[in-house]
Simulated scan of single mutants.
Amino acid sequence: MSLHYLIREPKIIQEKNPLLLLLHGYGSNEEDLFSFASELPEEYFVVSAQAPYPLMYGSYAWYAINFDADDTKFSDINQGKQSRDLIVNFIDELTNKNPIDPKKVTLIGFSQGAILSYAIGLSYPEKVSKIVAMSGYLNTEMAKENFEQNNFSNLKIFASHGTVDQVIPVDWARKTSPALEKLGVKFVYKEYPVGHGVAPQNFYDFRNWLEENK
């Protein structure tokens, strides 16, 4: 397998089960979001992937970040694109190895993982049916060229952000809604009075959203 990962097998076995793929943020690891696994719907395979670029001990990144830049020069775009395609390849590996329904793949991304989730969904909407993007923003430079011509009719997105996020300003996240509207993507956008993290209410809201959008 091309990425290191943790897996929770579904408790409700179907002929082909849906997949929740968890993508952590910058400087974290595969154990971070996996702490949610026991609280997630029981029919899913829950897989948490570790990003490929090591930072300090036990922490990883999907791409390098330039912390003193504005939103246009914030990220190493080429590394981001490489990770985007690495994750898409990893989805194929997972669906080949496990009885996963390739039409029911959901990405749950936090921060850098959310930014990549958007890039994957817009670049390869045939690979992903749903996205939960928390504390991230839409960076179209990480999407494939001419992504606007893709068919997004089956893609649904739950986006959320903290209003006092000190890492990724909420203003960046607010630009996502008009961009998705323009593309005709079905989405929900919510804000919570927190910083760069997942509020309990945010977790319950996206879990309910998953249940309502099977």
Rank of each mutant, 00 (worst) to 15 (best):
161 H>M: 03
82 Q>T: 14
182 K>W: 00
84 R>S: 06
110 F>Q: 02
20 L>Y: 03
150 N>T: 06
196 H>M: 06
201 Q>L: 11
160 S>N: 08
59 S>G: 00
97 K>P: 00
140 T>C: 09
18 P>G: 05
75 S>G: 00
126 E>T: 13
44 Y>A: 08
199 A>H: 14
82 Q>K: 13
169 P>V: 11
115 I>Y: 10
119 A>S: 15
57 Y>I: 01
71 D>E: 14
42 E>W: 07
123 S>T: 14
161 H>S: 00
130 K>P: 02
60 Y>D: 04
51 A>H: 07
122 L>P: 00
52 P>H: 12
167 V>W: 06
31 E>K: 10
123 S>H: 12
180 L>V: 04
170 V>N: 02
60 Y>I: 03
167 V>D: 08
169 P>G: 08
186 K>T: 15
60 Y>W: 15
196 H>I: 01
34 F>W: 11
124 Y>L: 05
4 H>E: 15
199 A>K: 09
135 S>W: 02
183 L>C: 10
124 Y>P: 01
199 A>G: 02
107 L>F: 11
85 D>Q: 15
213 N>C: 03
197 G>C: 05
121 G>S: 06
210 L>A: 05
87 I>P: 01
159 A>V: 02
77 I>C: 09
169 P>L: 13
57 Y>S: 09
50 Q>C: 13
22 L>R: 00
99 P>C: 07
40 L>R: 10
198 V>Q: 02
209 W>C: 04
210 L>G: 04
44 Y>C: 09
108 I>H: 08
121 G>C: 05
131 I>W: 06
24 H>V: 05
48 S>P: 08
193 P>H: 14
211 E>I: 14
35 S>E: 14
189 Y>S: 13
18 P>T: 09
133 A>H: 05
171 D>Q: 12
166 Q>A: 14
50 Q>E: 15
189 Y>H: 11
193 P>V: 12
87 I>K: 05
118 Y>V: 04
115 I>M: 12
36 F>A: 13
128 V>P: 01
7 I>D: 04
126 E>R: 11
89 N>R: 15
117 S>P: 04
147 F>K: 05
74 F>K: 14
44 Y>P: 06
64 A>K: 14
10 P>S: 10
46 V>Q: 02
6 L>Q: 13
163 T>F: 08
6 L>G: 03
175 K>T: 10
87 I>C: 03
7 I>G: 04
91 I>D: 09
131 I>C: 08
138 L>N: 08
22 L>M: 10
15 E>F: 06
212 E>L: 15
23 L>K: 03
213 N>D: 09
151 N>V: 07
83 S>G: 09
30 E>W: 01
86 L>C: 08
99 P>A: 14
16 K>N: 08
214 K>M: 12
24 H>E: 04
64 A>T: 15
130 K>G: 08
47 V>E: 11
178 P>A: 05
209 W>E: 03
98 N>F: 15
59 S>F: 04
179 A>G: 02
100 I>L: 06
80 G>R: 06
206 F>L: 09
175 K>V: 00
68 D>L: 09
101 D>G: 01
127 K>M: 03
62 W>R: 05
46 V>Y: 03
140 T>H: 05
42 E>Q: 12
213 N>K: 07
174 R>W: 00
106 T>Y: 08
